[in-house]
Design a protein around this nucleic acid. Structure first.
Lengths: 123, 123
DNA sequence: TGCAATAGGGAATAATTTATCCCTATGCGA
DNA sequence: TCGCATAGGGATAAATTATTCCCTATTGCA
């Protein structure tokens, strides 16, 4: 397992929420699970850009952080279902706020992000 | 300059806000600037854990994303001041929501994060 | 039998992000 | 003159995160 070399910063609320939400696909995972997409294979299909591997790893972290819970049905072929814990559900309004801000400012954001990524000076 | 090899995902609002807020120190920078700490040297002192270099880079990205604006006073020794743009100010309530959730759940978060980072199974 | 679907781990590598170190430049005060 | 403060860039190394590829196992279906 990977061992951190730079310590975590857990001083304030912003550090803490950052720690559990930081990860390329985590917010999306939480959101899709919230929307009822609960089986790993479905999540993989929905988030096709991500490698299966990372999704598994990030799901496990979400579980360790008690944001989602996992039920393994003793069947073959295997069946697994994720759902939000009560704690995880409290994050949904927070994620909503993020999403709304992004949606509301879509055009401008797309514009500045693309311009910045191409390193075009601000006109 | 670094050239991306994996394309950006700019589909929904969550992707977009992620793109501008992703970066180890960006939220903190926005917050401190919001609180009136505006000169680079002050920001460096406040965020002492970060290397000066990255702060400069992330400030420049925030500027390219039109969240902060920069005034360079033609003086020696140089004087520079950052402030939030109108657009940047609209992010403050969003960051507040993040911070509040983190503050409210401080203890639990600290607990699960530390446990997870030490790879101790959920008891 | 051969292949798809299911869930997921190991190892190695690539991509990306941060950190470290050193350099420029100027005026002020000891 | 020496050293500090100011702001910030270049090159390179280190740390972190994500991707790719390959492997396990079982049942059902053609």
């Amino acid at each position: 397992m990977y061992e951190r070399k730079i310590p975590l910063y857990l001083n304030c609320g912003l550090d803490l929420i950052g720690e559990v939400l930081y990860g390329k696909w985590k917010i999306r995972l939480l959101w899709f699970i919230h929307e009822g997409i609960q089986r790993p294979s479905e999540l993989h299909r929905k988030i096709a850009d991500a490698s299966r591997r990372v999704l598994n790893i990030q799901l496990k972290e979400l579980e360790e952080h008690e944001l989602v819970s996992k039920i393994i049905y003793p069947q073959v072929p295997p069946k697994v279902e994720y759902s939000l814990t009560e704690f995880g559900k409290t994050l949904i309004p927070v994620i909503s706020v993020l999403g709304h801000w992004g949606d509301k400012n879509q055009e401008r954001l797309r514009d500045v992000i693309l311009r910045s990524s191409k390193n075009i000076p601000v006109g």
